Computed example of a mutant assay.
Amino acid sequence: MTDHDQPARHPSPAAVPSARPAVVVVSVAGELDMDADRTAELDAALQRAATDPGSPAEITVDVSGLGFCDSAGLNVLLRAQLTALAHGRTIRLRGPNPQLLNLLKRTGALTLLDHEPPPPTAA
């Protein structure tokens, strides 16, 4: 028998380890507004994470270092969520501050973005 005559051997799907991480974390700090370069940078990073075939199902945006977010920043987050959902993924906010939570509530976006509460502050 030659190599061509041998039956093909394929590992079972369970035997192939997944190289895909469970969660990808994208961090943003400072201000997220129409004048900030980081708004465009965050948009690009989230769009990449949402559309990359190797990305995990959950994309966490660590906003715990964010001092301010306006409608431009909110638009980036909502657009990323729509793109993520279209690719079978979700966006989750980690540690939103009171200003961001208020913006999300007032615009009705709080129900569209899953979020983890900020860590308790030491008294």
Results as ranks from 00 to 15, higher is better:
Met1Trp: 05
Met1Val: 00
Asp3Glu: 15
Asp3Gly: 15
His4Gly: 11
His4Phe: 13
Gln6Cys: 11
Pro7Ser: 09
Ala8Ile: 11
Ala8Thr: 06
His10Leu: 13
Pro11Gln: 03
Ser12Asn: 09
Ser12Gln: 14
Pro13Ser: 10
Ala14Ile: 14
Ala15Pro: 10
Val16Phe: 12
Ala19Thr: 12
Pro21Ala: 14
Ala22Cys: 08
Ala22Phe: 09
Val23Leu: 12
Val24Trp: 00
Val24Ala: 12
Val24Arg: 07
Val24Tyr: 02
Val25Ile: 13
Ser27Glu: 14
Val28Ser: 02
Val28Gly: 02
Gly30Ala: 08
Glu31Arg: 01
Leu32Ala: 10
Leu32Ser: 10
Leu32Gly: 09
Asp33Trp: 08
Met34Thr: 03
Asp35Val: 02
Asp35Phe: 07
Ala36Asn: 10
Thr39Lys: 03
Glu41Gly: 03
Glu41Tyr: 01
Glu41Pro: 02
Ala44Gly: 04
Leu46Tyr: 04
Arg48Met: 05
Ala49Gln: 06
Ala49Asn: 08
Ala50Phe: 01
Thr51Ile: 03
Ser55Glu: 11
Pro56Arg: 00
Pro56Ile: 00
Ala57Pro: 11
Ala57Ser: 15
Glu58Tyr: 10
Glu58Trp: 09
Glu58Val: 15
Ile59His: 14
Val61Ser: 02
Val61Pro: 01
Ser64Ala: 06
Gly65Ala: 12
Leu66Pro: 02
Gly67Cys: 06
Phe68Ile: 13
Cys69Ala: 11
Asp70Ser: 07
Ser71Phe: 07
Ser71Glu: 01
Ser71Asp: 01
Ala72Asn: 08
Gly73Tyr: 00
Gly73Met: 01
Leu74Trp: 06
Leu74Thr: 02
Asn75His: 12
Val76His: 07
Leu77Ile: 06
Leu78Ala: 07
Arg79Phe: 03
Arg79Trp: 03
Ala80Thr: 01
Ala80Lys: 04
Leu82His: 11
Leu82Lys: 11
Thr83His: 13
Ala84Lys: 05
Ala84Gly: 09
His87Ile: 03
Gly88Glu: 12
Gly88Asp: 12
Gly88Met: 09
Gly88Ala: 13
Arg89Cys: 05
Arg89Thr: 02
Thr90Asn: 13
Thr90Cys: 14
Ile91Phe: 08
Ile91Lys: 07
Ile91Ser: 13
Ile91His: 10
Ile91Arg: 05
Arg92His: 08
Leu93Trp: 12
Leu93Pro: 09
Arg94Pro: 05
Gly95Ile: 05
Gly95Ser: 05
Pro96Glu: 08
Pro96Asp: 07
Pro98Met: 10
Gln99Lys: 11
Leu100Lys: 00
Leu101Thr: 15
Leu101Pro: 08
Leu103Lys: 14
Leu103Thr: 05
Leu104Cys: 10
Lys105Asn: 09
Lys105His: 14
Lys105Tyr: 11
Arg106Lys: 03
Arg106Thr: 14
Leu110Gln: 07
Leu110Gly: 02
Thr111Gln: 15
Leu113Tyr: 03
Leu113Ile: 00
Leu113Phe: 03
Leu113Pro: 01
Glu116Leu: 01
Pro117His: 05
Pro117Thr: 10
Pro119Gln: 15
Pro119Asn: 11
Pro119Asp: 12
Pro120Val: 06
Thr121Met: 09
Ala122Asn: 09
